[in-house]
């Protein structure tokens, strides 16, 4: 089995410089992520999910335990360059990730710094902008773009490094519903068409529903690690972790609690409507 990311008993402690107090942010995290998987990471603020993401490209290294990315131990400082090339990160605020005055210059920034040849940079920039559907904006000024467009340029900038893994830390938190849709569709397409391994941290349940697997982190530990259809129907457990479930799942769950013969294994509007319609048909035939 091709595990592109593997962590073993990953622990991370943070020491406050002023008080000298040590906080344990990540506790004993062991997991494997396969090449081409789309993972959503959920958890409330302060759960440790961003700290976890930062371990995937060696922005942080474990206090104890190990993280391997593409077989490389992230605590091996000599290999830092290889790890950064393998894992591209996209952050919350698109404005903080723009460095140039023209979209294509911005996308070229990373390959330029990797010492890639001029013709190869041209090829990579064009491919990356095409991959996020932003080719027609190549010569535009980034500050004139919408939030969703800016964030797609940020993703293109990461793609130009030709990484094998892309890690996104709440990429849609500052976007409106249209911008969010643009980003999720882009990420899904990269995952399906280019077999890119995706790790996406999010607060939005409707985005997590799109993933192959959902990892729920709470208080620095993995609470759940399963496909969305196994995670979200545990409505009460999710609520106790300070997380939402899709309304479709919650509605089915509540009907079940009210004594109707319905389970909460639904995520979408259609699935929920199907189950309720079945109940309705039963009522009608019994009359």
């Amino acid at each position: 089995m091709d595990n592109i990311i593997r962590t073993e008993n990953l622990c991370f402690n943070y020491t406050d410089d002023e008080t000298g107090k040590t906080t344990c942010v990540l506790k004993d995290i062991s997991l494997e992520i396969k090449r081409g998987e789309f993972i959503a990471v959920l958890g409330h603020n302060g759960s440790g999910k961003s700290t976890f993401a930062k371990h995937l490209n060696a922005i942080l290294t474990p206090t104890s335990g190990k993280v391997w990315v593409g077989g490389v131990d992230t605590s091996d400082e000599k290999r830092l360059y290889d790890i950064r090339k393998m894992v591209g990160m996209v952050f919350q605020n698109p404005d903080n990730q723009m460095v140039a005055n023209i979209v294509e210059d911005d996308v070229a920034f990373a390959p330029e710094n990797l010492g890639v040849t001029r013709s190869e940079i041209r090829r990579r920039v064009d491919t990356a902008l095409a991959a996020v559907n932003m080719s027609e904006f190549a010569m535009h000024a980034p500050h004139m773009l919408s939030g969703g467009q800016k964030q797609r340029v940020a993703i293109a900038g990461v793609l130009a490094m030709e990484p094998e893994i892309i890690v996104l830390d709440e990429p849609t938190a500052m976007l409106d519903p249209n911008g969010r849709r643009e980003i999720i569709e882009t990420v899904k397409r990269l995952n399906k068409e280019k077999n890119m391994t995706v790790v996406m941290i999010t607060h939005y349940m409707e985005e997590a529903v799109e993933a192959d697997r959902v990892i729920v982190i709470d208080n620095g530990k993995i609470e759940m690690d399963a496909p969305p259809i196994e995670v979200f129907p545990k409505v009460e457990k999710m609520k106790s972790l300070g997380l939402d479930t899709p309304q479709a799942t919650e509605l089915a769950f509540l009907l079940g609690k009210n004594g109707f013969d319905i389970d909460s294994n639904v995520l979408s509007v259609g699935e929920c409507a199907d189950k309720i319609e079945q109940l309705w048909k039963k009522v009608m035939t019994n009359d």
């Binding site: 409707e206 899709p246 509007v269 409507a273 309720i276 319609e277």
Partner: peptide
């Protein structure tokens, strides 16, 4: 539109 609104609208279309 909230997901519940869509569910109720869909069920009404199906005759509930």
């Amino acid at each position: 539109v909230p997901q519940v609104t869509k569910i109720v609208d869909e069920l009404r279309r199906r005759g509930m």
